[in-house]
């Protein structure tokens, strides 16, 4: 599917995409340019510019209150749900500014799924949790729902554990299984980008390591952007790392190996070595 076709999917009405909005980079799927986000008078993000490559894991790290989650929410416009939130600058998805008036946030979120900190399955069966997105999108009659549910559960490394109990309540699974169920639910509609906001912080180390393995596998198909407080996790699983510091400033963005071996910015060095914060 071309970049332009992808962009058109975001638009609720037939509006021609302006070619000038494309950044021309085939490897960039999400691109921020001078992005600032305010909650009332408080600035949460300050002139953030970054190009996030497709089908890679990009980690976002930084101290509490630095704007990590705000940046994540700005990608799929979840910030729209927060009153007093104001966005300046550009946030492009496949070359289209997602804050343009002609972009439908609901359509956008179909292309950019999200997994949250605590597992939050719907109070439904395992099967219905995974099928939910496809049904809401009205695709249930167009696709082989059983096949798609199986595909998503396999991609989420959960199929072998639940294939004989798909009618069981999703909330009856263990915490780690519930989080993988939420990942299956997020990827069932086949988005391009999966946003994860501290997806393992509520899990034990074994369950967390399964999620980490899964994230690396998911990056073969999807672009994964993960906010994490766990710097070792960022070092283990991500290809790129963005370091935000207090004031909502993106201080450094580079290959993860570079960030953790030889960062450019002294503030990043101080933060990741524990001399700051």
């Amino acid at each position: 599917m071309s970049t332009q076709e992808n962009s058109q999917k975001l638009i609720s009405t037939e509006v021609q995409v302006d070619e000038r909005t494309h950044d021309g980079s085939a490897d960039t799927v999400v691109s921020a340019a001078d992005l600032s986000v305010y909650y009332g008078d408080d600035q949460a993000l300050s002139d953030v510019s970054v190009d996030i490559p497709e089908k890679r894991v990009t980690a976002i790290i930084g101290p509490s209150g630095c704007g990590k989650s705000t940046f994540l929410r700005s990608i799929n416009r979840m910030n729209d749900r927060i009153s007093m939130c104001r966005v300046e600058g550009r946030l492009q998805f496949n070359g289209k500014n997602v804050y343009d008036d002609d972009v439908d946030p609901v359509a956008l979120r179909r292309r950019i799924g999200q997994v949250f900190q605590s597992p939050n399955p719907f109070p439904k069966s395992i099967y219905d949790n995974v099928a939910y997105g496809l049904r809401v999108q009205g695709k249930a009659d167009d696709v082989d729902l059983d096949k798609e549910v199986e595909r998503a559960l396999k991609q989420a490394a959960l199929w072998d554990e639940v294939k004989d109990k798909l009618d069981s309540f999703g909330l009856d699974l263990s915490g780690g299984q519930q989080q993988r169920l939420c990942i299956a639910r997020a990827i069932a509609p086949d988005p391009e980008v999966v946003l994860m906001d501290e997806p393992t912080s509520a899990l034990d180390p074994v369950a967390a390591s399964k999620i980490e393995d899964l994230i690396e596998d998911l990056a073969e198909t999807y672009t994964v952007i993960i906010v994490t407080h766990n710097m070792q996790q960022a070092a283990r699983i991500s290809d790129k790392t963005a370091v935000f510091l207090t004031g909502g400033e993106l201080v450094e963005f580079d290959d993860t190996a570079t960030i953790f071996e030889d960062p450019d910015d002294q503030r990043v060095e101080d933060y990741i070595t524990g001399k700051f914060g």
Binding site: M231, Q232, E261
Partner: peptide, 9 residues
């Protein structure tokens, strides 16, 4: 301590 950056080096 899982050192990184200059500490690791």
């Amino acid at each position: 301590q899982q050192p990184v950056a200059s500490d690791l080096r």
